[in-house]
Structures are given as structure tokens and as C-alpha cells.
Design a protein around this nucleic acid. Structure first.
Lengths: 225, 225
DNA sequence: GGATGTGAAAGTGTTCACAGCC
DNA sequence: GGCTGTGAACACTTTCACATCC
């Protein structure tokens, strides 16, 4: 298949889940896996995995399944993970510092290369192996290193201002930790990470499941064959 | 309408977004809002908001729109946010400590009441106004305070073991920060927060948008973490 | 007049089921 | 025999459009 149809966004969102699982399986020494087994492992149906992959090509062998390291490499290529993506973080509070010094980015394709804040007391302080810089220096840094990804880690009240600055500087993807909706022009992506929003949807099921559904979805990765 | 039909999960996931927006609007002194205005504010269509709300009742006034504080109160009630939910955190590394001392939970209906780890060097150390306890004490704490929500903040390799322990202790909702899929019995919910998974889907659009779509969806505002 | 609430239509996404290949 | 890749069927979600009511 040669991608005549646009790939649904929801499929793209699942690919990183496959990458994560395949990397674990590869580390465990698993050489080959069927869509059924992979599905059980990550809680998705086998048909869905096969369908998702079919948007990009044919990666399996009939009767055998998929070669783990080959499939992993292919999906990484599709997602643009053959390189390391530099990122900037704005906001050097507790959250921003935790993000900036998180060592889980590098092995999965990302690297924080700059941390910015507007608090004079913070500027100049070290965070991991970086030094907090004044946010006014952000545009130059973004342009100098052609950085496409920005992380917003400031309070909600300042998040839009920071997003505007990032967009102005040329950032095209924003990971937003501030608990507020950001408005950006077409051509820029925003993804929110707000644990409270996530928790608040779980409480719905905690209070609405006494008798009926004993509380939500079961283990997916169902049957088929 | 009296809820004859089960509420779609995707609708439940949007309700916290409405809560977040309405709380901000209320704080700004906005008294009344139409579905169109609210939709613009959070990047969702007006029809979608009206449809979502229709699963739970009639909250607006035709010709007027919605009274902000009334709608906020109603959605919070639907989500079970009229109380504060106690939570336990397992994993007292940098991430677990950041979570345990995050002050953004309390004003939005959650409170970390226990932090656990299995590292003798950490046990007894203070985190915020809590003290790190041995993970073996978790079940008793969960039962004693009837805690339903657990947060997993340990390395991927230990996450399943921790989830099993939580489930065994009576936890019914898990917020999983470990970058791995958890398996839990029906009746227990899991939500993952893995910023790398989120970033990895954004890179797809960074790499695949030279000409066609100038890089993804327009005004976002939705989503979660 | 103006905005809600909602059936019906349109659009998306998932699952089925099986031909085809290893 | 076993498992992929994929049209077709089915299920779900969003959008439309308008009767209804303030």
C-alpha cells in the first residue's frame, strides 16, 4: 500500500505505544511477535495493530508475525525518530527543573538543550548540566539551533504569553504542562499534559460504577484469529 | 434527558476540560457564557459542547447560554468532585517527590496522603509535609483511609509489581507515570502519562508536513495528559 | 432575537472475516 | 497450519440544522 489516504491522527498517536513496547520486547530478547501477542502486551486488538501498520506499508511475514527489531526501526523512521530532537523548556520552577533534568528523554529521541525563566533569582542557576537563562534569549536560541519543540512549564496565567513567544520564535510543537488551553496558529501543534484532568475523568467512574459496569474497561487485547 | 444511554467515555474525558475552563472564567468574573464562546475558549465546537452536556441534563437557558458557576458546579458533581480524593504515590525518586509535593492537586479535588518507596535510604525522609514510608505499609494505609487512587512513579521495570500491589490493596484507579503498559483486572482503571509518547506523535507531523497540511490541526486546547 | 437541546446525517474509527502467502 | 493485510460491515463520534423556549 502506498499511502493514498491521509493517515488518521489517532493512528499516529498509537505508533509511539508500539515503539515503547517493541523496544521493551527487543531488550528482553524477543525476536519475533505476532499482532495477537503484541496486542495482548499493550492492550489493543490484533486487528487494530495490523490495520494501523497497513497505513504505512507491509512489515510482517504471513504465518510468522513481525520481526521485532525491524518493525521497531520502521515505526521509528515513520515517526521521525532516527534523530535526537532538541527542545527548550520555559519555566524553571520545580516542574520545569524536573523536566529539564529528566534523563528519560535522551534514550527515546529527545534532549532539553535550554531552560528559560524570567525570574532574575533563577537566571544563572544550574539545572542538570544546563544553566537557566533569561526568557528573552529564547528566540535566538531557537533560531540558532533550529529547535522545533518547546515545553511550557510556567503557571497557567503566563502560559499563553510563553506560547506566543515560542511560536514567534519558530517553535512548531508545544508540550504544555500548564493547566490551561493554549491558542496557537494553524501549523503549530499543542499537546497538554494535565494530570488533574486525567484524574478527574477517572473519578467519574469511581462514583458511577457501584452496580453496573464494575468500573470501566476490562483488559482489551481480546481474541480474534 | 434522563440518561437512558450509557455516556461515551470520550465525553467523560472532555468534562474535566470544561471544568478547568469554567473555573478560570469564573475566576475572571464571567457570569454567563454561550456554547459558542466556551467552545472558542477551549478549542471545541459549540455543537459538541451542547451534545456532551445533553448526556447529563439541561444546564443552559435558551437565548442566554450557561450560567458559569452553575454549570461548573453541575459538572463537578457529575465527576464526583464535590469531595477531595486522597491518593497514594509509590516511588519517591525525583518524579515521585515532585508529584507528592505538587500544590496544584488540592484546589482541584485531590490530595496525596502517602508516599512510599522500597529504598531504605529514602524511607523516613520528608517530602513536603509527608514522610516516605516503606511500600509494605501501603496496603494498610489504603485500607485505613479507603483510598481509591494510586500514582505509580517507579521505573518501568517495577511498575507492574507496584500496580499489582495497589490493586491487591483495593486501589481502583491508577495514574501511571512509568513508561510501560500496565495490566490490571477489569474494574480497575489505568491512565498513562508518558510525555515521550506524546512528543513522539508530534514529531510525525514535524517530519511529514512540508507542503500538504501546513502542520496539523488548528486551534487545539483539548487533550489531556 | 438568540441560544439551547437533539434527532438525523455525515464522518471517523474499529472489528470482522477471509483471501493470500509463508 | 498460522498469521498478515485489507475490503466490507459495523460501531462510534461529530456536525448539522432546526424546533423549541427564554
Amino acid at each position: 500500500m502506498v499511502r493514498e489516504v491521509e493517515v488518521p491522527e489517532i493512528v499516529v498517536r498509537r505508533l509511539p505505544i508500539y515503539v515503547r513496547a517493541l523496544a521493551q520486547l527487543e531488550a528482553q530478547g524477543v525476536k519475533t511477535i505476532s499482532s495477537l501477542e503484541l496486542g495482548r502486551y499493550i492492550g489493543i486488538t490484533a486487528a487494530q495493530i495490523r490495520k494501523d501498520l497497513s497505513y504505512f506499508g507491509e512489515f510482517g511475514k504471513q504465518g510468522r508475525g513481525y520481526e521485532v527489531s525491524h518493525l521497531l526501526r520502521e515505526i521509528k523512521r515513520i515517526l521521525g525518530l532516527t534523530r535526537v530532537w532538541p527542545m527548550v523548556v520555559v519555566g524553571a520552577g520545580r516542574l520545569g527543573q524536573a523536566i529539564a533534568s529528566y534523563d528519560g528523554f535522551k534514550p527515546r529521541g529527545f534532549e532539553v538543550v535550554g531552560v528559560f525563566d524570567n525570574d532574575p533569582a533563577k537566571i544563572g542557576q544550574p539545572v542538570g548540566h544546563l544553566v537557566i537563562r533569561d526568557v528573552s534569549e529564547l528566540p535566538a536560541a531557537v533560531r540558532a539551533h533550529d529547535i522545533k519543540i518547546g515545553i511550557v512549564a510556567v503557571p497557567a496565567a503566563e502560559a499563553q504569553k510563553v506560547a506566543d513567544l515560542m511560536v514567534q520564535a519558530g517553535i512548531r510543537a508545544i508540550l504544555n504542562y500548564a493547566p490551561t488551553a493554549l491558542h496557537v496558529p494553524a501549523g503549530v501543534r499543542v499537546e497538554d499534559i494535565d494530570p488533574v484532568v486525567t484524574l478527574q475523568s477517572m473519578t467519574y467512574y469511581l462514583v458511577n460504577s457501584e452496580s453496573r459496569d464494575p468500573a470501566g474497561t476490562a483488559c482489551p487485547g481480546a481474541a480474534e484469529g
